[in-house]
Amino acid sequence: MSLLVILLLFLAGFATGAINAVAGGGTFISFGALSLIGVPPISANATSSIAGLPGYFTSTLPYLKDIRTIWRGILVLAVVSILGSLLGALILLWLNDAQFSAAVPWLLLGATGLFAAGPWLKPKPREAAERTERRGLAAPLIQFVTSIYGGFFGAGMGIMMLATLGLTESGDYHRLNAIKNVLANVIALVAIVVFVSGGVVNWAGALAMIPGVALGGYCGVWIAKRVAQIAVRIFVIAVGLFLAGYYFVTG
């Protein structure tokens, strides 16, 4: 891996961390950068998950106080998230690159659409507070399906999870976001263990990106004060559509 490629991956990691901090959707950047330098799609997906791990942890830190009060209530969701993520990651490893490449443009289009609809999918605090918890089978079943997607691909997972939690959990937006962040960590960690065990991680690419992701996440607050979130969202959507087109042509 040349110094130029390492620099480009570092910058892609920085953009990933910063975009995740400002608006979400940074996975498009890390996955796209790895794809465009020739990393096979399955490896690019797995490596992108590794590179994004610091962001999953840091996004949870502001909610530690809330998490201490809710963790017992989300144990069932955490368990089904483990099972779903394990299944999704194993399905990915069962595929070959040609099969996954055929699915990638459709996954990217779906994730881009989900990201574009994100502002409308967020539950409104008043509506969330008025909901009663519909625990039953609905909550774990919906979370199981979401975690399969998260283990398999992951782009747009946070937005999808926030929307589905709004259907089954009570509380305001911040409570739902705290639950989402906990479950996102669970899903990511399980998928990463499977990917590492399967030997599909491009470690050189991951190591080049991780410092950039960490730095970008740290600078995200500064960027958020100076760049309109709508501009970041438009950029992420454009990248998602570009990558979908790229895979439609080359896949």
Results as ranks from 00 to 15, higher is better:
residue 76 V to T: 14
residue 184 A to T: 13
residue 131 R to Q: 08
residue 85 S to A: 15
residue 130 E to I: 07
residue 95 L to H: 03
residue 67 I to K: 06
residue 22 V to I: 12
residue 179 I to N: 12
residue 210 I to K: 00
residue 222 W to K: 09
residue 217 G to E: 00
residue 224 A to H: 09
residue 194 V to R: 00
residue 74 I to Y: 05
residue 47 T to P: 06
residue 69 T to N: 12
residue 5 V to G: 03
residue 198 G to Q: 08
residue 46 A to R: 10
residue 28 F to M: 01
residue 35 S to R: 02
residue 98 A to H: 15
residue 239 V to L: 13
residue 174 H to W: 12
residue 121 L to M: 07
residue 77 L to R: 14
residue 146 T to E: 10
residue 53 L to T: 15
residue 41 P to T: 12
residue 225 K to I: 04
residue 149 Y to M: 11
residue 147 S to L: 10
residue 225 K to E: 11
residue 199 G to D: 14
residue 222 W to C: 05
residue 125 P to D: 15
residue 30 S to P: 07
residue 21 A to V: 05
residue 58 T to V: 14
residue 231 A to T: 13
residue 21 A to M: 13
residue 61 L to E: 02
residue 26 G to Q: 01
residue 132 T to Y: 13
residue 224 A to P: 10
residue 203 W to H: 06
residue 57 F to L: 15
residue 245 G to Y: 13
residue 138 A to G: 13
residue 1 M to C: 07
residue 212 G to E: 05
residue 100 F to I: 11
residue 64 L to H: 06
residue 40 P to D: 13
residue 248 F to N: 05
residue 71 W to Q: 09
residue 223 I to V: 14
residue 63 Y to P: 04
residue 81 S to M: 08
residue 159 I to K: 06
residue 43 S to K: 10
residue 7 L to N: 03
residue 248 F to W: 15
residue 85 S to Q: 08
residue 87 L to A: 13
residue 222 W to I: 11
residue 184 A to F: 08
residue 169 E to F: 12
residue 25 G to M: 02
residue 242 F to Q: 09
residue 243 L to Y: 06
residue 180 K to R: 07
residue 148 I to G: 00
residue 70 I to H: 05
residue 12 A to E: 01
residue 79 V to K: 08
residue 95 L to F: 15
residue 205 G to M: 05
residue 8 L to Q: 10
residue 200 V to N: 08
residue 25 G to A: 08
residue 177 N to C: 06
residue 175 R to H: 02
residue 79 V to D: 01
residue 214 A to K: 01
residue 22 V to Q: 01
residue 232 V to E: 01
residue 118 G to E: 01
residue 62 P to L: 04
residue 75 L to D: 01
residue 84 G to W: 09
residue 76 V to Q: 10
residue 17 G to A: 04
residue 165 L to A: 00
residue 40 P to F: 15
residue 243 L to S: 06
residue 83 L to Y: 00
residue 80 V to S: 11
residue 233 R to L: 11
residue 134 R to V: 14
residue 172 D to P: 06
residue 26 G to T: 01
residue 115 F to L: 00
residue 247 Y to T: 10
residue 144 F to A: 11
residue 206 A to S: 04
residue 41 P to V: 15
residue 251 G to L: 14
residue 162 L to T: 05
residue 131 R to A: 11
residue 244 A to S: 13
residue 53 L to P: 07
residue 230 I to A: 15
residue 89 A to C: 04
residue 110 G to E: 03
residue 3 L to S: 13
residue 178 A to D: 12
residue 218 Y to F: 12
residue 68 R to S: 13
residue 170 S to C: 08
residue 5 V to S: 10
residue 113 G to E: 02
residue 102 A to R: 12
residue 170 S to H: 13
residue 20 N to G: 05
residue 25 G to K: 03
residue 243 L to N: 06
residue 47 T to W: 10
residue 136 G to P: 15
residue 14 F to T: 02
residue 151 G to P: 02
residue 213 V to W: 00
residue 214 A to F: 14
residue 225 K to T: 10
residue 188 A to G: 08
residue 180 K to G: 02
residue 223 I to L: 15
residue 186 V to E: 11
residue 48 S to I: 09
residue 240 G to I: 08
residue 48 S to G: 09
residue 45 N to K: 00
residue 195 F to E: 03
residue 195 F to K: 01
residue 190 V to L: 10
residue 224 A to Q: 04
